[in-house]
């Protein structure tokens, strides 16, 4: 690259330094590309992850009442976990309404399985906010939030991708990209299956029957 600001060619040592800097830039760009492209493959790997490393496991978050909510409170109860955020106008209410509808179609009552809504946006989603949001669906849904560290850990142990993304038209100038896969756990807290966003209701119902109380 010609350098228009200098009158003479830079010394060889400086050129080498520049080469190294550009190489570092290239490595950083590749790393960024990998990070950006990763979620697609990450979700695809969920099945293999589930056979290798345990998906789920104990957690402590914050309930709608502002008090700690621990996975021990789900002991003996099957549950479905969905990650989202209350400023999510489209997919989150669609998925929660769908889960509520599927639970109704199972015909085993509201205790057939618990529905957990975990915020990936704890900066905005206060306990009160997730609690109110969970009431939208006219059926019991457990709204949960927590500290950023708690949410990160929760998402990690459920192989859920989450990323804050700038959006000038969204409230506070950002939106959240997030895994919309629903994870199903049996009454022993063991990971059983996932419901993908694109998956049809019959397949989803079959899976829910497997965990239902």
């Amino acid at each position: 690259m010609p350098d228009t600001t200098s009158t003479s060619a830079p010394p060889a040592g400086l050129r080498r330094v520049r080469l190294i800097v550009w190489a570092l830039v290239a490595v950083a760009a590749l790393a960024l590309a990998w990070l950006l492209l990763r979620p697609a493959s990450q979700a695809g790997q969920l099945q293999s992850v589930s056979t290798g490393v345990a998906v789920g496991g104990p957690f402590t978050l914050t309930g709608a009442d502002g008090r700690p909510f621990s996975s021990t409170q789900l002991a003996g109860k099957p549950y479905a976990v969905f990650f989202g955020f209350t400023h999510c106008p489209d997919v989150c209410p669609t998925t929660l309404a769908r889960l509520a509808g599927l639970r109704q179609r199972l015909g085993q009552g509201e205790d057939a399985f618990q529905i957990l809504f975990v915020s990936v946006d704890p900066e905005r989603d206060t306990p009160e906010a997730v609690g109110k949001y969970a009431q939208l669906f006219n059926t019991p849904i457990i709204g949960l939030t927590g500290s950023r560290a708690q949410i990160d850990q929760m998402a990690k142990q459920h192989a859920i991708y989450q990323a804050k993304v700038p959006d000038a038209e969204a409230p506070d100038g950002y939106t959240m990209d997030h895994g919309a896969t629903v994870l199903l756990f049996d009454r022993a807290g063991k990971f059983v299956a996932t419901i993908a966003p694109e998956e049809g209701d019959p397949a989803a119902l079959d899976k829910l029957k497997r965990i239902a109380a």
Partner: peptide
């Protein structure tokens, strides 16, 4: 306060919403 057309896309289980 504001209305704007957005599109949600789903790939590999991850949802993204953009203007």
């Amino acid at each position: 306060a504001k209305a704007s057309v957005h599109v949600t896309t789903t790939a590999g289980g991850v949802v993204r919403m953009r203007s």
